[in-house]
């Protein structure tokens, strides 16, 4: 579980300044913002637009296009279960239902207590050791009900 910084405009400006010189700086800035705050706050959009000489609409368009960028904070833990074909061939669908049951939430949801978010991901490149998952950035392969139980336990810590 990553501890994120609270929103701060000064910090956001620092991040932007550190990346502004790059060719095509928008994506690197958005990634860095999300890494710092855990999501891309709406307040950062005008700031990026101003710094890069873009319109707000352009920056907003980029934020909303990519699946990775969150506009709201996720749960304290994030479990991503691979939903792509190779993982399906090894029973990912059934495991997903199991995880949903164990966590009491459905794919795409965050638990009411903000403890955990469950999301699909489309391939982690671990397709020869399917099914696979990522929990708080850590990779897990050869998933079964037992490993799902372990992941669920991890979110309780």
């Amino acid at each position: 579980m990553a501890g994120y910084e609270p929103w701060s405009e000064i910090r956001a400006q620092e991040i932007i300044t550190a990346h502004r010189h790059m060719d095509g700086a928008t994506m690197p800035i958005l990634h860095a913002v999300q890494e710092a705050f855990g999501f891309v706050p709406d307040l950062v959009v005008p700031l990026i637009a101003e710094n890069l000489n873009l319109s707000r609409a352009e920056v907003h368009g980029v934020v909303t296009f990519y699946h990775d960028f969150r506009r709201e904070p996720a749960g304290r833990h994030v479990i991503k279960l691979c939903a792509a074909e190779a993982c399906q061939s090894m029973g990912a669908d059934k495991l997903t239902r199991y995880a949903e049951e164990r966590l009491g939430i459905e794919m795409g949801e965050t638990s009411a207590d903000g403890r955990v978010t469950l999301e699909p991901i489309y391939c982690l490149g671990l397709c020869a050791c399917a099914p696979s998952a990522m929990i708080d950035g850590r990779l897990v392969g050869r998933l079964d009900e037992e490993t799902i139980d372990e992941l669920v336990a991890e979110t309780n810590r």
């Binding site: 994506m27 690197p28 990634h31 990519y66 699946h67 990775d68 489309y122």
Partner: peptide
């Protein structure tokens, strides 16, 4: 290196 953002 540049990083994508989850768009196939």
């Amino acid at each position: 290196m540049r990083m994508g953002a989850g768009a196939y």
